[in-house]
Design a protein around this nucleic acid. Structure first.
Lengths: 148, 148
DNA sequence: TCCGATTTCATCGTATGCGCTTGAATTACC
DNA sequence: GGTAATTCAAGCGCATACGATGAAATCGGA
């Protein structure tokens, strides 16, 4: 959306949703060549970051942090398993759940300093953190508005 | 990425790219039920907004505004044509180019006030415009860093 | 003029996202 | 304690994104 009192002819450049959409495309393009060298896609990388934060999560837990459902996550996790970054195993205590664990190969990547070179590319300087917080808040507000 | 002096264990919640990624998911989910009623997907809607701003554009021109290439845009525009929102026609003066024009049906939607109800859902209040500008700037900086 | 380079759109294969549905396992409830 | 409801992962179809490639039209220099 644009703003509360909408202009007669809304312009793409005034849409917050489009700014977010296109910034996401830009991040995807910026990350791709970096992650490609490691044999990772962006979403796979996000899953690894979530697992570095806490290992041994179920698909749902991981999905909650990534804002994804199992139908999206399952194929991604299977790829990560094929590539040897993680292990997928049914929980013996509750066979409905699949627990995701990092392998040694998956843990190692943690020290790779993957996206740091992109800090400068954002060109935000000191406002980096403010923008990060604002966008996270925006996301949380939108997500909450869906749940009601 | 997170910040310049990286923490030992980067947390998902500190990533600007993840904030943008997940906010984009949230917008997609917020828009879906609204656009569904009109028989539009989000990307199709963006294409229409760009055409409302200026009608009769080539695929490349539209792609520049939407930050998309013809390989992504072509199937989307074909869908919009099938749905009767636009017309696709080769430019007689240069048969390489395909010109995109709104149909009457496509023009009408302009007055539909589509995303305005989402303004409140963002929960940003007065900072809405600042966030919009910051994220657009972020996108432009990232995109520029790719072009060099 | 002629032919190679460039431009423009389109096709193909891969990887998400998501709604819908299925199927297996567990829990709740009478 | 047996059946209904719930939970959880996964399968399927559709709609983007994008790199690589192809094909047609145009351009430009010898």
């Amino acid at each position: 959306m644009t703003k509360s009192p909408a202009p007669e002819r809304p312009k793409l450049g005034e849409f917050l949703c489009f700014a977010v959409y296109s910034a996401n495309l830009a991040f995807g393009r910026a990350y791709r060549p970096i992650l490609e060298k490691l044999g990772l896609t962006y979403t796979q990388y996000v899953a690894l970051v979530a697992l570095w934060e806490r290992d041994d999560q179920t698909v749902s837990e991981l999905g909650e942090k990534m804002f994804l459902e199992s139908n999206t996550l399952t194929p991604i996790l299977k790829k990560l398993e094929q590539s040897g970054f993680i292990e997928r195993r049914r929980d013996p205590a509750d066979e409905r759940q699949v627990r995701i664990r990092l392998t040694a190969k998956g843990s190692e990547l943690r020290n790779h300093e993957i996206g740091n070179e992109l800090f400068d590319a954002t060109g935000l300087g000191d406002s980096f953190f403010d923008v990060q917080k604002s966008v996270a808040k925006l996301r949380d507000n939108l997500m909450r508005s869906l749940g009601d």
